[in-house]
Simulated assay, not measured.
Amino acid sequence: MLKQILIVRRHPYEEPHHTELEIIASDGEFAGRVRFFTSVETITDLAKGLIAFCDDPNSEFIYRSDGRGSAFRMTCRSSNKTGNCALEIDMRADAARPFEGSCLLTLHSDIGAIVKLGARLREFSRLSYEELHWLPNGDGRMFEKHQKE
């Protein structure tokens, strides 16, 4: 059985303006991974969007990777009136058959843990760390170098 986790890896590429992100996610049953090129500002936008969502949990935060290539979408929404949230992650590999792939999963969390994810992403956007781990209970840490799987 897998554990519920979100891992964000940064693969330096034309920094400080552009980078390659690798997102690895598991809901305990399913897991997926996607890599895509994006601006470093994307990491800051993700952080700001998650923190702003927590200011108004009746809202919805949606991030979609743009451009060509593999696709990543993250949606954060309230799942009930007691502060529980659903972080939906949709990943699609840009590959021709028979190598295509996709994964859609949801991590269930609470507002406090989403705030912690936003704060960690804000710190991650400073480009001092290459890997961020976040658990739906709010625990997590950042690493200066990629961790072995």
Results as ranks from 00 to 15, higher is better:
residue 111 I to A: 11
residue 78 S to H: 12
residue 93 A to E: 12
residue 59 S to W: 11
residue 100 E to N: 15
residue 76 C to G: 10
residue 114 I to Q: 14
residue 104 L to A: 06
residue 72 F to P: 00
residue 61 F to A: 03
residue 94 D to A: 12
residue 81 K to Q: 09
residue 81 K to H: 10
residue 55 D to G: 14
residue 102 S to K: 15
residue 97 R to P: 13
residue 115 V to P: 11
residue 112 G to E: 03
residue 70 S to P: 10
residue 90 D to T: 06
residue 76 C to S: 11
residue 54 C to M: 09
residue 113 A to S: 01
residue 93 A to M: 02
residue 69 G to H: 11
residue 103 C to Q: 09
residue 77 R to H: 12
residue 102 S to M: 01
residue 69 G to N: 13
residue 99 F to Q: 08
residue 113 A to H: 05
residue 113 A to G: 04
residue 94 D to V: 08
residue 71 A to S: 09
residue 65 S to M: 04
residue 68 R to Y: 14
residue 63 Y to A: 05
residue 86 A to G: 06
residue 58 N to W: 13
residue 116 K to H: 11
residue 85 C to A: 11
residue 76 C to V: 05
residue 105 L to H: 11
residue 110 D to T: 06
residue 69 G to L: 06
residue 100 E to F: 14
residue 111 I to D: 08
residue 75 T to A: 10
residue 73 R to I: 05
residue 89 I to G: 02
residue 102 S to E: 13
residue 88 E to D: 02
residue 101 G to Y: 00
residue 102 S to R: 11
residue 96 A to R: 15
residue 100 E to A: 14
residue 62 I to F: 09
residue 82 T to C: 02
residue 101 G to T: 08
residue 115 V to E: 15
residue 73 R to N: 04
residue 95 A to E: 13
residue 97 R to A: 15
residue 64 R to C: 08
residue 92 R to F: 07
residue 87 L to T: 06
residue 67 G to L: 07
residue 65 S to G: 02
residue 85 C to R: 00
residue 62 I to L: 12
residue 56 D to L: 08
residue 74 M to N: 09
residue 77 R to T: 11
residue 87 L to R: 07
residue 111 I to F: 03
residue 96 A to L: 14
residue 68 R to D: 13
residue 105 L to F: 09
residue 90 D to H: 02
residue 112 G to R: 10
residue 75 T to M: 01
residue 102 S to Q: 15
residue 105 L to G: 04
residue 111 I to H: 07
residue 104 L to P: 03
residue 75 T to F: 06
residue 72 F to M: 02
residue 78 S to Y: 12
residue 66 D to V: 03
residue 78 S to Q: 15
residue 70 S to R: 05
residue 86 A to N: 05
residue 69 G to A: 11
residue 65 S to T: 00
residue 85 C to F: 11
